[in-house]
């Protein structure tokens, strides 16, 4: 296998990934090296496979019966599709934020405390309180909810719910944070808040974000990969992709001619 610790600090190394949904060949031979403490954006038209590929990184595709993944993905050099790897443990290490805010029908506190409780990250109530406060602060939500931690999480606004989901993902102290179009259900103000948050999260995690919006990719990411019809067409520095793409398909997509 390829050496993953080349020049830069590679966190996730994916090589020759193919994904099939039943008969459909959704991802065709994709290889990508994702750096640590970096925001990497996946862009491309609907149905191009960017979300599918994202879901390979924490093996969420395992929960779909008809999905089949081949190829090799390593995080810190460890093969995550190795039969000895427990996908449940993996998902504790690779957090995920979904397209639609999906707070559990529990209180705000219990939403954030859910992961730490399951993984036994706290020894007592005081430690758990501390984790919840810290995570909500990192989710830029603490000031807004500190007086109503025991009210239901479903009662928050859409943008607050999504930040709650981010805080919930952060609370389990993952190493990688996957975000599947986290702003597509939010208004511009909430989007700006979440984007600001993503930039801060970069200090601690490797963030991979799937987005429909090219402006968003340009604003938040350092590296960008362009997907088209199941292929990864181009992967480079974000600035280069948006100013001087090499592939004509990337050029037509970012200039609005396809997609």
């Amino acid at each position: 296998m390829k050496d993953t610790s080349m020049t830069k600090n590679i966190k996730i190394s994916a090589n020759n990934i193919d994904v099939y949904y039943g008969e459909k060949h959704a991802i065709k031979d994709v290889s990508v090296q994702i750096e640590d403490k970096t925001v990497t954006a996946f862009i491309g038209p609907s149905g191009c496979g960017k979300s599918t590929f994202l879901r390979c990184i924490n093996r969420m595709n395992d929960t779909i019966d008809i999905a089949r993944v081949t190829g090799h993905i390593a995080i810190d050099g460890e093969d995550i599709y190795d039969p000895r790897v427990d996908p449940v443990q993996l998902r504790a290490k690779v957090g995920m934020v979904f397209q639609k805010p999906n707070p559990f029908p529990k209180s705000i506190y219990d939403n954030v405390a859910y992961g730490p409780k399951i993984h036994g990250l706290s020894r007592n109530k005081a430690e758990l309180d501390e984790i919840v406060e810290k995570s909500l602060r990192r989710g830029a939500l603490w000031e807004e909810v500190k007086d109503r931690l025991h009210e239901p999480g479903t009662g928050l606004s859409g943008g607050q719910q999504q930040r709650l989901c981010i805080a919930r993902a952060v609370a389990t102290e993952p190493e990688v944070l996957l975000m599947d179009e986290p702003c597509s259900a939010l208004d511009p103000i909430a989007t700006a808040q979440v984007e600001e948050l993503i930039d801060e999260l970069r200090q601690s995690f490797s963030v991979v974000i799937v987005t429909h919006s090219m402006q968003q990719a340009a604003r938040v990411s350092q590296k960008t990969a362009f997907f088209h019809l199941g292929n990864m067409v181009e992967y480079d520095e974000t600035d280069k992709i948006f100013t001087n793409p090499e592939d004509p398909r990337t050029e037509s997509y970012i200039s609005g001619r396809i997609g």
């Binding site: 443990q89 993996l90 998902r91 995920m96 979904f98 029908p105 859910y114 399951i118």
Partner: peptide, 27 residues
Amino acid sequence: VPQSLRDGSLGLGSTHSETIRQVVLPA
């Protein structure tokens, strides 16, 4: 019960049975 709740719980690294007991059944 929306699939998104199950995804959210599984995505946090909880097992299938933890998801059922702590998220699906309460919902």
